[in-house]
């Protein structure tokens, strides 16, 4: 599998007067799992969405394999065609799954292969079936999203992304909308992907996943990237008080 790297440097994002991302620098190595953690509203999702330009950053650079994302030059947005070309290599999984409810699981996965990659329907469906098998849903290909559990829907969404053969996968709180008993099945699929050497950027509140699967963990607060470190470093020897506080709150909430 080809795996992309991402270089984020001095990225700023404003919503009106609100400074959502402040000079963020982050280096995402190829074939590794990077987890973004931090309190709600800290800018993790915004940063993630800047990587595939669903969110337009205002200054700084996001480079995927050296290629500037979203702009031809600073301040000059790239054409829609070029943007679509770059997005093809980047898969994205959303908190709310965002499956297309009028299509079956198979059609959801095949749609991009047919409409974007231009594959003939039969081949697209064969590949879609493979992708669904990979996420453990070979028996659900004919189901519409309304007939799937949240965990199954999210796995279809992962299949939809990996069927496009991306070199980079973005996960935006993939388990936050799930009932607790369904979180595991989604995390397992993600672990498999990670073990295959996919570059993954994961915004998550699952500290266990971050601790055990991530190669590096980035902590954000109030639009600032406070620290990037190994999971060991972040969770067991945090160098910043803000990380310490965040983890303490997390532990208190999850203690029983």
């Amino acid at each position: 599998m080809q795996a992309s790297s991402v270089e984020i440097s001095k990225v700023n994002k404003f919503y009106g007067p609100f400074h959502a991302l402040k000079d963020v620098d982050l280096s995402i190595p190829p074939g590794k799992v990077t987890c973004l953690i931090g309190p709600s509203g800290s800018g993790k999702s915004t940063l993630l969405r800047c990587i595939n330009f669903l969110e337009e950053y205002d200054s700084g650079e996001v480079r995927i394999d050296g290629k500037l994302m979203g702009y031809d030059a600073p301040g000059r947005k790239m054409s829609g065609k070029k943007l679509r070309q770059m997005r093809r290599g980047v898969g994205m999984v959303f908190q709310q799954f965002n499956l297309w409810p009028h299509m079956t699981a198979l059609q959801n996965v095949a749609e991009g292969l047919i409409r974007v990659r231009g594959l003939p329907k039969s081949e697209a469906e064969a590949r879609a079936t493979d992708a669904l098998r990979k996420v453990g849903l070979a028996d659900k290909t004919g189901n519409h999203p309304a007939r799937l559990s949240g965990g199954q829907q999210q796995r279809v969404a992962i299949a939809r992304a990996i069927a496009m053969e991306p070199q980079l996968m973005l996960f935006d709180e993939p388990t936050s909308a799930l009932d607790p008993e369904l979180v595991g099945e989604v995390l397992n699929v993600m672990k498999t992907l990670a073990s295959e050497g996919m570059t993954m950027v994961v915004v998550t509140h699952e500290m266990g996943f971050a601790a055990h699967v991530a190669d590096q963990v980035a902590f954000m607060e109030k639009g600032e990237l406070v620290a990037v470190d190994s999971p060991q470093g972040i969770f067991h020897a945090p160098k910043d008080e803000r990380i310490w506080n965040f983890l303490r709150t997390y532990r208190e909430r999850n203690a029983f």
Binding site: V90, M92, G112
Partner: peptide, 12 residues
């Protein structure tokens, strides 16, 4: 989100 999902995979 359903429109964004389509944009994210590069649909026109």
């Amino acid at each position: 989100g359903q429109i964004e999902a389509a944009r994210a995979i590069g649909m026109t």
